[in-house]
Every structure is written in structure tokens, then in C-alpha cells.
């Protein structure tokens, strides 16, 4: 019997491990290393109505235990993703979670209604949290009422369950989570990157052409764990957790915090085999820790104790 299968709205996962959006393209590059069917799911690169070029370069800058990126949602656009990328991915036995982005409410609605019709798209991930685009993104991800309204609009047109990707760049993440729950979200994914900046020692100027970028990698894991710990106690939506995951131990920690599945982003750049390696290493670690099934780890950080009254209010 598998210790790893997980059921989530729209997603019947053979294991809870999936590459995070923007860190795996549309899978083509990584398919040269391993059979993508071993993955629990794939979160594809953000898709917008029109093709986007994104920001000028440099678009990435390394930091201690992390990296900043300011890609700017470069993607080939809805039409091409539906005509080329999704059909190509359908050769693999793996559900796709389509990351949906835009500048205006109607952009999100347009992408969601079309892309959710694709046979292998089993869920949407509403990207209301990209820190690297000038318009749209930020208000959707930081003002609870706006996020709720957008979620509702997208839910109306989507043919598959809708997960909303939360931004850590807010003062009260629980409030955001509750708002999108009220808007009808089926699940949450968190966290997106944390806004940061690096300066060049010689010139004194920002290294990134966009000046600021989103911090990802091991450096942000404690922030993600804390936020999932808080949100998972405050809402009843399942959470796909992400931020600095690089090992099977990290996955267990995310489950302890309250996640129901885990996405791996930046670590793919460091080790292209990181996802299959984690999937292989999970069962022996669960065995060692005394769990029959991964779901037993879920919410352990707060289940044994009284949850904070504050988050239940």
C-alpha cells in the first residue's frame, strides 16, 4: 500500500510532491532527466491571456541560502499553452495545476475559463501574489476584499477546483486566507516569494534590472512554515505548501505545519532530480518516524495542543 497518495479537491495524487510554478517551465526540460509521470502533479508556469516578455535582465540574483527573481511572468500566452504545452504534457500520467495570472480581473477570468477546459488541467492556481509585475498582481494579493471578489469571479467560470496562491507580503495572512475561502476557493497554495533586493558592491546599484525581486529557496522556509501553521488552523481549506523545500524531511515539516501537499521550486535548479529523489526518500523517513501514511503528519504542530484562541476567533 502506498504511504504517499493524497486526495485533494480535483486532485487524486499518487504522492504529494510537485514542482512549483515558474521553476519547471512546462516540463519539457526536466523530462530529459526523468519520467514526469512519477510526480504527484505539475504546477506549470504562469499563463496570461497574451504572450509576455517579462522584465529586462539581470532577472536573478543569488542570496544567502536563496535567490531573488524578477522574471515578470514571461510566458507564451494562453493560446499557445493550450495548443502546444498542455497537449504535450498529456503524454504523462500526471495532473496539471495551471497557474493563472493577469493584470485585470477579466484577464484572470479569460484565462481561467479557457485553460480549465483542458483535459489534463485538474485544478487552477490563481496567482494573485506575483511581486514582479507592475499592475494587477499586488492589489489582488494584498487587499482581502479584492482577492475575495476575484476568487468568486474565477470560480464562476472555472470547470475545475480553484486554489489561490497567497502572497507572504502582507501583514495578516490569515485575513487573506479567510477572504478567499469566503470567495469560494477550493484550496490554498502558499507561499509565493518574499519581496527583496540586493545591491552590487562595486556600483551600489540593485543587481536586478527590476530593482526588487522575489526571494525563494531555503531562506524562506521558516516564514512559509509559520504562515501555514497559522492559516491551516484558521481555515478549513487544504494547503499546498512551498518555500525552500529540498528534502523529504522538509516535506514532513510542511505537513506538520498543516500542509496537505508540497511544491518544490528553486531546488529544481540546484538538483534537477530533486522531486523524484524526495518521492523516493519519503517512505523510509515516514517509516523511521513511525507513520503508516503521510496524512498522519498533517497538522501535528498544532493538533496536540490547544490552538491559539486568536486564530480561531
Amino acid at each position: 500500500m502506498s504511504r504517499l497518495n493524497v486526495e485533494l479537491p480535483g486532485l487524486n495524487l499518487k504522492n504529494p510532491i510537485m514542482p512549483a510554478s515558474g521553476c519547471f517551465g512546462f516540463g519539457r526540460e526536466y523530462s530529459q532527466f526523468y519520467d514526469l509521470s512519477v510526480l504527484g502533479a505539475i504546477m506549470i508556469k504562469a499563463t496570461t491571456v497574451e504572450p509576455r516578455f517579462g522584465n529586462p535582465t539581470p532577472r536573478v540574483a543569488e542570496t544567502d541560502a536563496g535567490m531573488l527573481n524578477a522574471i515578470g511572468l514571461q510566458n507564451p500566452g494562453l493560446e499557445k499553452v493550450i495548443a502546444k504545452e498542455l497537449p504535450w504534457l498529456s503524454q504523462f500520467d500526471v495532473p496539471i495545476i495551471a497557474n493563472v495570472a493577469g493584470s485585470l480581473e477579466e484577464d484572470y477570468v479569460a484565462v481561467a475559463s479557457e485553460i480549465s477546459k483542458a483535459a489534463n488541467v485538474h485544478a487552477l492556481e490563481l496567482n494573485i501574489s506575483c511581486p514582479n509585475v507592475k499592475t494587477g498582481g499586488i492589489a489582488f494579493g494584498t487587499i482581502p476584499e479584492v482577492a475575495k471578489q476575484l476568487t468568486r469571479k474565477v470560480k464562476e467560470v472555472s470547470e475545475v477546483p480553484v486554489y489561490v496562491k497567497l502572497s507572504p507580503n502582507v501583514t495578516n495572512i490569515v485575513e487573506m486566507a479567510k477572504a478567499v475561502e469566503e470567495g469560494g476557493a477550493d484550496g490554498l497554495t502558499m507561499i509565493n516569494t518574499i519581496v527583496g533586493m540586493r545591491l552590487d558592491l562595486k556600483t551600489g546599484r540593485p543587481i536586478l534590472a527590476n530593482r526588487t525581486g522575489g526571494l525563494s529557496g531555503p531562506a524562506i522556509k521558516p516564514v512559509a512554515i509559520r504562515m501555514i501553521y497559522e492559516v491551516s488552523q484558521a481555515v478549513s481549506l487544504p494547503i499546498i505548501g512551498m518555500g525552500g523545500v529540498q528534502s523529504a524531511e522538509d516535506v514532513v515539516e510542511y505537513f506538520y505545519a498543516g500542509a496537505s501537499a508540497v511544491a518544490v521550486g528553486t531546488a529544481n535548479f540546484v538538483d534537477p532530480f530533486v522531486c523524484p529523489t524526495i518521492i523516493e526518500e519519503l517512505p523510509p523517513i515516514l517509516e523511521k518516524l513511525g507513520f503508516e501514511h503521510i496524512s498522519e503528519c498533517k497538522g501535528r504542530s498544532w493538533k496536540q495542543h490547544e490552538p491559539f484562541a486568536h486564530y480561531r476567533a
Binding site: 515558474g22 521553476c23 519547471f24 517551465g25 535582465t57 532577472r59 535567490m67 522574471i71 514571461q74 535548479f269
Partner: peptide
């Protein structure tokens, strides 16, 4: 150019 993945996946 500054790189992330080095293999064409990240658009860096």
C-alpha cells in the same frame, strides 16, 4: 547572462 536553471526552464 545570469542564470537560474541553465537548461531553459526558468526564463532567467
Amino acid at each position: 547572462e545570469r542564470m537560474g536553471c541553465g537548461i531553459g526552464a526558468c526564463f532567467a
